[in-house]
């Protein structure tokens, strides 16, 4: 966590794009999508402008926590191939600038969300930023191989914030949306870690693959995928799930469970022989998994509005 080894690039003054990159735009897109889904499926309604404003605040808050993560993790980012072109290790932005940028946007997004919607949504956003920047980045990431399991909570909160922006409360439905992402995070990241192992190893990040080996990781992926299917099914206990969700949940959970079993059955020789083909396929499937589940919930909400179908 020292920037003594980061050489500032004198020929390149930080551009607007470098500051934007601090916000982790790709992660932000998932935050925006799930927050939007939470906002859409929530009962009642919100003025479209306030809804847009709320999503913007959630996106900025999520991005701000990304900037704080880059500030603290610049030493790790420098040694990992995937992250060494980020603005701080690339010498375009200093650590101090990233910290100031992250803190300012964090405060700004929480206050603006409170002014636009309500204190529950604002408090959840503040908790998300705190959890990602402090609990995950500063504490768990370097301390335990369960880092992404617990840290995943911050990535799972946006649909709850979107929901709270409309209703001002926390209910079983919003908690189950949280659980859907929370339980999905471990198999998603561990499948990535299976074929990106060397990177985490080099950075001395205690990923499960590094500390307990790939066999244990494959076992963990299977267990979490089974638990995830249980939480996906629990959504039927809420008024959110209709026919679209039923179809998506059955198809995607069957495919995801099958993928997890394939990964569990494989050993390292087999995986290395085909360059982790099944692990890469499972990772890609995991991206479609969340996207389709939340799309289905939104589709059901639209169908209910037109009087087509209804909750189970």
């Amino acid at each position: 966590m020292t920037d003594a080894t980061i050489v500032l690039d004198d020929n390149h003054e930080a551009g607007f794009g470098d500051y934007f990159a601090l916000l982790k735009p790709r992660v932000m897109s998932l935050v925006v999508f799930t927050a939007f889904a939470g906002l859409i499926v929530a009962p009642g309604g919100i003025h479209p402008f306030l809804g847009f404003f709320a999503i913007l605040c959630i996106a900025i808050g999520g991005g701000a926590s990304g900037a704080l993560n880059m500030w603290y993790d610049s030493d790790i980012d420098m040694v990992m191939k995937r992250t060494k072109s980020r603005p701080i290790p690339a010498g375009k932005v200093t650590r101090g600038e990233a910290l100031g940028f992250g803190l300012t946007l964090s405060a700004f997004s929480v206050v603006m969300l409170y002014l636009a919607t309500n204190w529950v949504a604002a408090a959840l956003l503040a908790f998300t930023i705190f959890f990602y920047a402090v609990v995950y980045t500063m504490w768990l990431k370097r301390a335990t191989p369960q880092n992404i399991v617990i840290g995943g909570a911050s990535g799972a909160l946006p649909p709850m914030i979107g929901w709270a922006a409309v209703t001002g409360d926390i209910t079983l439905s919003s908690v189950l949306m949280f659980m859907l992402i929370f339980m999905w995070t471990p198999p998603h990241f561990w499948s990535l870690a299976l074929f990106m192992n060397a990177d985490y190893d080099k950075a001395k990040v205690p990923m499960l693959t590094v500390t307990h080996g790939k066999r244990a990781t494959r076992n963990h992926i299977l267990v979490y995928t089974i638990l995830l299917a249980g939480f996906a099914a629990a959504m039927f206990a809420t008024p959110l799930a209709g026919w679209s969700y039923l179809i998506v949940a059955v198809v995607m959970n069957a495919a995801f469970l099958r993928g997890a079993v394939v990964l569990w059955r494989r050993n390292e020789e087999e995986a290395e022989a085909d360059n982790y083909k099944a692990e890469r396929a499972f990772f890609k499937l995991s991206l479609a998994y969340t996207f389709l589940h939340f799309m289905a919930l939104m589709a059901d909400k639209a169908l209910f509005a037109f009087g087509i179908g209804g909750p189970f």
Binding site: H12, E13, A14, G15, F16, G17, Y19, F20, F49, L50, F53, L56, L115, A116
Partner: peptide, 23 residues
């Protein structure tokens, strides 16, 4: 060298003013 940063910041501030007015 600073052009993109200045233009970006200007646009962001302008957008902020518009958003606050709308809010």
């Amino acid at each position: 060298r600073r052009r993109s940063r200045n233009v970006g910041l200007g646009l962001a501030l302008g957008a902020f003013v518009v958003l606050l007015l709308g809010l």
